[in-house]
């Protein structure tokens, strides 16, 4: 049955620039001049703005732009039991995040994402709204461990917690869940158990599950991608001028591939011709995969770009994809459901 998705479905990775007025509301809330209700209203309004941008750009599978999340680890650490914060830590230049410390056993309490998913899906233009969740390995790697004997032990408990969250999302109607694991290829010696941990986190999640991996040494993780029980892997590729596709072919990665065609580290807006050419090159090179296995996305979240730039980049991504869609022969039907029984 046709699910309504066109060939080469376009999507985003998750985060999107917060409107300036939302940042101001957050600041005023921190000063006590706005209350929680004001903040909640502003966050909901900003989700409407993000979805509108995604709709204007023509993105097939949108997200809520992660408007409620300051940072991808911080957000979950604030809501799971077992974490505390000592203060900000610099990541580069003037950019900081509050890196959490695990000080007791990690516990999943109240659902963390269900409310935001319910709100976003209630106003979404697409029935296929994607929810993003930080993966257990990245959560463990980007936290300080003061409690567990090993990072692996911590990551397994995080996998259980994230699994509970994903089950709650599925119960609420989520059809596509993306697990963000930007750290999974950081420590070569840990990759084998990192794969087990991700698989543990998605056990029993029988909707489409996507893994997002970006930046770093892909040769660490690509040999293991087929062992990860996800339906799709989306990747930062544009930033590397698509060099990593050689590795994808070498290891014959059989997952659906989300092709990163937009560099999120620059304000230069890719042209639609450039996107179409890049896509064509990747699809032709990865000729062992059928065309319905390809999705299209930016390399990573767009939150660090100015909003205008982010929107233009998405428009180019969709326009470039459309050029190629026309060239694809009929009968290409991308799947929206799970391809693996987890």
């Amino acid at each position: 049955m046709n699910n309504g998705l066109p060939p080469l479905p376009t999507t985003v990775i998750g985060s999107y620039p917060r409107p300036k007025w939302l940042r101001e509301v957050i600041r005023l809330r921190s000063l006590g001049r706005f209350n929680d209700e004001d903040l909640s209203e502003a966050l909901n309004d900003s989700v409407q703005v993000v979805l509108r941008d995604h709709q204007v750009a023509g993105v097939d599978v949108p997200t809520d732009g992660e408007m409620r999340r300051d940072e991808m680890v911080e957000f979950f650490a604030e809501r799971l039991g077992g974490f505390m914060f000592y203060g900000p830590v610099r990541v580069w230049g003037p950019n900081y995040y509050r890196k959490p410390s695990v000080v007791s056993k990690v516990r999943h309490g109240e659902p963390m994402l269900v409310d935001e998913f319910r709100y976003a899906s209630s106003i979404s233009y697409s029935p296929y709204l994607k929810v993003t969740i930080t993966g257990p390995y990245t959560m463990a790697d980007w936290s300080y461990n003061e409690y567990y004997k090993s990072k692996e032990e911590l990551a397994h408990d995080l996998a259980k917690a994230m699994n509970s969250e994903m089950k709650a999302l599925v119960e609420s109607g989520a059809k596509i869940i993306q697990v963000d694991e930007p750290a999974i290829h950081t420590h070569r010696e840990e990759v084998k158990w990192a794969v087990d941990v991700v698989n543990e986190s998605i056990k029993g999640i029988n909707v489409k599950v996507v893994l997002h991996v970006c930046y770093g040494d892909y040769s660490v993780i690509f040999p293991h991608l087929n062992e990860i029980q996800v339906d799709q892997v989306n990747l930062a590729l544009k930033n590397y001028e698509y060099e990593p596709i050689k590795l994808l072919k070498r290891y014959k990665v059989e997952k659906e591939i989300g092709i990163g065609v937009i560099d999120v580290h620059t304000n230069r807006v890719e042209t639609k011709e450039e996107v179409a050419k890049d896509l064509n090159r990747v699809i032709r090179y990865l000729d062992y995969l059928s065309p319905d296995k390809f999705w299209v996305n930016p390399d990573c979240g767009l939150k660090l770009r100015p909003r205008k730039v982010a929107l233009e980049k998405l428009k180019s991504m969709v326009a470039g994809t459309s050029v190629l869609r026309e060239k694809l022969k009929g009968g290409v039907e991308p799947s929206i459901g799970p391809t693996i029984n987890r």
Binding site: R90, W92, T186, Y215, H265
Partner: peptide, 13 residues
């Protein structure tokens, strides 16, 4: 050039 990971840390140069 662009940001590079400082060895295996979530810290970039």
């Amino acid at each position: 050039n662009g940001l590079m990971r400082f060895y295996e840390n979530n810290f970039y140069y």
